[in-house]
Nucleic acid binder design. Structure first.
Lengths: 137, 137
DNA sequence: TCTTGACTTAGAGCGCGCTCGAACCCGTAG
DNA sequence: CTACGGGTTCGAGCGCGCTCTAAGTCAAGA
């Protein structure tokens, strides 16, 4: 598979793939006789996993640590596991934080809904007003 | 309240507060007779809300749109609400995505746990092996 | 044979969100 | 009076993660 095909299938650009190889996030790819990179489909699994790490906010420098352990092969599993477990905790905390923010957003939005409802009530004739949203004068 | 106090109470640096004012994220602050910024405690509420938007990944340019509507005052509520509702949807999607990633992480970590367990089994004497984790030779 | 288009490398540039440095101004404590 | 610990402005610099340009190579199709 050439870099353009991999780009299409992975969703990365060819530029980004080369960049990832340069910094060590992707292993140095085999080249064919024209010095063009020649990929095995299995690389897609790794790219997909990198995408998950990225989605969850892992900085590249941490992905590099994981990638290096992976390259080092057997014997690094405990360290890889520790790295992922730490990351998992950070992601869980992040999800909790986002959910807390969602509650605040809900409250804020409800506030605007009420503001708009008051406006509608004001514009409506008296007999159409509903459920006492106005403070008594 | 002076900028240093606000910095302590908000968690931002004085540099960042000035930067936010410069770009319009914070309203232009009143100055005292020494031309020093003099803040009312109420600004903290706004800074806190900005923090929520930031936590949830809203880019500064969008916060600026919201801040501008807020400055514009009454009559912009519907637009502000729409902005926040759109953002809320994005955040919800983000939470879903993170949760999906967490499942993948769990699977990956479980894989490493098993690898390590096999190692322990291999090191242990035969009679201590448990629950047939090994393929039969 | 010539053109087209995808590939190669090295390195510069960019958008974001700060972060910091320089040079200066003030008010207060010693 | 002087030193110090804030504050001020303006503008440059930085870390991140790409993104793009330039100049060249190569293989396949008209």
């Amino acid at each position: 598979m050439k870099i353009g095909d991999l780009a299409k299938r992975s969703g990365l650009t060819a530029h980004t793939i080369r960049y990832y190889e340069r910094i060590g996030l992707l292993p140095y790819a085999d080249r064919n006789q024209s010095r063009h990179r020649d990929y095995d489909a299995s690389i897609l699994t790794w790219i997909e996993f990198l995408g998950r790490l990225k989605t969850t906010g892992m900085p590249i420098r941490d992905m590099l640590r994981y990638a290096a352990l992976r390259e080092a092969g057997a014997g690094t599993e405990a360290e890889r596991r520790a790295l992922l477990e730490q990351h998992r905790e950070r992601v869980r905390a992040q999800v909790d934080e986002l959910n807390a923010c969602l509650l605040v957003l809900d409250t804020k939005i409800d506030g605007y809904v009420e503001t708009e409802q008051r406006k509608i009530d004001d514009d409506a004739p008296e007999q159409h007003r509903i459920r006492g949203r106005r403070k008594p004068a």
